[in-house]
Simulated scan of single mutants.
Amino acid sequence: MAFLGILCLILLTTLLAGHFSRKLGVPAVIGQLLVGIVLGPAILGWIQPSSFIHDFSEIGVILLMFMAGLESDIGLLKRYLRPGILVAMVGVVLPLGLVTLVSLWFHFSLLLAVFMGVIFTATSVSISVEVLRELNILDSKEGTTILAAAVVDDVLSVIILSVFVSISGENTGGNTPSLLIGFVEQILYFIGIYFVVKWIAPFLMHLSQRFLLGAAATIMSLVICLSMAYLADLIGLSAVVGSFFAGIAVGQTPYKAEIDHNMEPIGYAVFIPVFFVSIGLEMNFKGMSDALWFIIVLTIVATLTKLIGGGLGARLAGFDLASSYTVGAGMISRGEMALIIAQIGYEAKLIAPEYYSATIIVIVLTTLVAPFLLKHAAARQIQVQGQVKSHEN
């Protein structure tokens, strides 16, 4: 029962860290990420990555994105889908090209250099979502564009990874599934989302009222969330894509307020803090001195390529500079998506062991930087908007 002690330690320390982070005017998620670094292998070594933490963190990020979908305005998502596509496309091309060049500069093989580029095309907006929620701008045009771009970005990253692994499969000796079958499955999945939003979710939520349980509607929403996340994972998409659209589907029903009220304590009381700590646990300073310059340069390039790429995409979509900065900052975090891709590459022998730890450190560093930049961007945007309003008056 040692996991009970670990869970108790995580919950207590994240509660304190979140409290003091807020007091210092820093997003609470930063304190929770630092808990993972301090208590994990990097410093104290009290908590080690384990299957228990992995499973809890998976549920945490699924619930976090479900709540983001629940709070999303589907009308705004449709309206800002085009900007989202532009943000995602530019935000994928720029890191893919520049991270590859940087890796070649550090004498990586061409195959490994390109794979490093593939790793840093990924975006994980789960942490950005938390910061946007904290700042009450999740349902703004910038927050909606970030969410739309994240879905497109995830699909693009999966496609690029599938193509890359398929092409390099003969070098690694791995068997890869047919790309065509994978693409067809993913297209069918997105077609299925329409039916879930339009008919299946409303029917299931209405059906839940026939059960003689007070929490029936909440349980049914979890069934929808977890099943869509599972199916997304089954066909090669990220589970968070499924949970996000499940949130949108449930959010279109009359039970939205009830689910939102009941789901928040479930997520934030247990699972979501474990998710944020799990990212910090990936940090390990072993061998960091040998690859220090690589880590510094790659962290800067990985941060700037998403910031500039996402911001440029927003500018091309007609956003002003302040809004573009916010969108770009919201796309920086690599989080669990990049960690998953790096792990796939490591298992397929696409990334050498001596570079794996350094890559994980860069992923964690970009994830740590993201909330600070996003908060600065949001504050800057509010300031600019205030100046415009006072100018108009």
Rank of each mutant, 00 (worst) to 15 (best):
G143H: 08
A122L: 04
I119L: 02
L132Y: 02
G60W: 10
L86Y: 13
W46H: 07
L112E: 13
V92H: 07
S124V: 05
A149Q: 08
L81W: 15
A42K: 00
K141H: 12
H54P: 02
I127W: 03
L86G: 06
S103Y: 07
L39G: 03
L77E: 07
A28H: 07
F106D: 00
L96W: 01
H107V: 05
E142N: 03
L135E: 12
V102W: 00
G143W: 04
S157F: 01
A149V: 09
I62G: 04
I137P: 03
I62S: 05
E134F: 08
V152K: 06
H107M: 10
G91A: 09
V114P: 05
G97R: 03
L39A: 10
L77P: 11
Y80W: 11
G60C: 05
E134D: 12
L33A: 05
V151N: 04
V61G: 08
R79F: 11
A148S: 15
L104G: 01
R79W: 05
A28Y: 06
A148R: 05
V92Y: 03
I146R: 00
G91I: 01
S72D: 06
I74Y: 13
D55M: 12
T144Y: 00
D153P: 07
M116T: 15
W46A: 11
L39F: 15
F106N: 02
P49E: 14
D153I: 11
L132S: 11
I74S: 14
L101N: 09
L64Y: 04
L132E: 00
S103P: 04
L76G: 07
P95A: 01
L76C: 08
V158L: 10
L98G: 06
V102C: 05
L70N: 01
G75Y: 12
L86H: 11
V158H: 10
I43K: 05
G60T: 12
S51R: 12
H54Q: 10
P27Q: 02
R133Y: 04
I59K: 01
V131M: 03
L77Y: 03
G143L: 06
S157E: 03
M116G: 03
M67F: 10
V92T: 15
H54F: 13
I30D: 02
R133Q: 14
F56P: 07
V151T: 12
G75L: 11
V125S: 13
D154E: 12
V152C: 10
L34A: 14
L147C: 07
K78W: 12
S50Q: 09
I74T: 14
L138H: 10
A122E: 00
I43F: 15
I43Q: 08
I59S: 02
L64C: 11
S72K: 03
D139S: 14
S128R: 06
G75N: 14
G45A: 11
I159F: 07
I74F: 14
V152T: 13
I127K: 05
V61Q: 09
G97L: 14
L156P: 05
P95Y: 01
I85S: 09
